[in-house]
Design a protein around this nucleic acid. Structure first.
Lengths: 173, 173
DNA sequence: GATATTAGTGGGTCGGGACCCACTATAGGG
DNA sequence: CCCTATAGTGGGTCCCGACCCACTAATATC
């Protein structure tokens, strides 16, 4: 917890600006010096803004995740997508449905094991993902605006390590 | 977007471990080198784990935020809490209700302006917040396990700057 | 072949968060 | 005084994301 009333800005150079929504309404330092809290809050912002862009196209984060997985790893059975992305099989079915209906992916039964449905991305899907990736980077520029290129690299690398460390208890997209 | 199939680990020293849930199931590099994505994902993990701890006590993140605000800034009218924390007045009323019922805060009408209800924290509330803060730090140690103390400082400071930069479009606790 | 197991699907539930409206009580300005 | 704005409250709604169960089809095991 931060020391009582005087809003100490923890390990920070300068408070820079009074900052938040309303003038003179800073968030509690007790929260602000929990990286946990900042992570959660900033992460939520990032998520929300990205989701917002996707929503304009009627897509959700999972759609993008699935497309990315297909581009990066090639055609896969749904079970593989499920394991890789950690979402519910039932939910994936719905996502795949939607993507297939829109022509971004194709599904075909695996001839070796006809229980499996192999999903592959179409050209339209590739094009879509490219656009989405662009949008994601645009959002990133917004969110990371206060950081210079070097700092963004550092952040990226720290986050990646943190990510790799987390037990991955089946959390979101 | 990351280059096609070979799962390039972007601007990172070493992939360290194969890492995720199931053996041989890495997440798509296309996503992993979006800081936006990592932020969202890691943030979600942090949030979830913290919320989990709070839930054991029947609390939600907002409860903690309110307590923190009261400790850091002293007794305030609900309207101040609303503005500071950016939550709906109606929702705050419910949170305050619950906290008051549990004896963590007290409410009293402001004598200067009897429309206002001034909320103040009790000793029990202070004690609770201290505990919650401890739990939050425990979660933090879990989540940030891969980072050493110096790196955590860097992360904290970067996140704080990013946070300050975000327009704060009335997002979560 | 009978049985268990795996892949996919459809149809739900559940809880949380954000939001909104109608209503009361008080304050303040003309 | 009357009228508008503000503070708080008590109802809701809506949209998610996560999860679960029941069921079919195909395969694997013995």
């Amino acid at each position: 917890m931060a020391s009582e009333n005087p809003p100490t800005a923890s390990a920070l150079p300068e408070p820079e600006k009074p900052s938040p929504d309303l003038p003179g309404f800073e968030l509690p330092p007790t929260l602000l010096d929990l990286s946990t809290y900042l992570l959660s809050r900033v992460g939520k912002t990032a998520r929300a803004r990205l989701a917002e862009r996707l929503a304009e196209r009627g897509l959700r984060l999972w759609d993008m995740a699935v497309l990315a997985s297909l581009v990066d790893f090639g055609p896969q059975a749904q079970r593989d997508l499920v394991r890789r992305l950690g979402l519910d099989p039932s939910d994936l079915a719905k996502v795949a449905d939607q993507l297939a209906a829109a022509g971004y992916v194709e599904r075909a039964r695996d001839r070796a094991d006809r229980r499996r449905v192999s999903v592959s991305i179409t050209d339209a899907g590739r094009a879509l993902l490219a656009e989405l990736d662009g949008q994601a980077r645009a959002v990133q520029d917004e969110v990371l605006a206060p950081l210079d290129a070097g700092e963004r690299q550092v952040l990226q690398s720290l986050l990646l390590r943190v990510h790799r460390g987390t037990g991955e208890r089946r959390t979101g997209p």
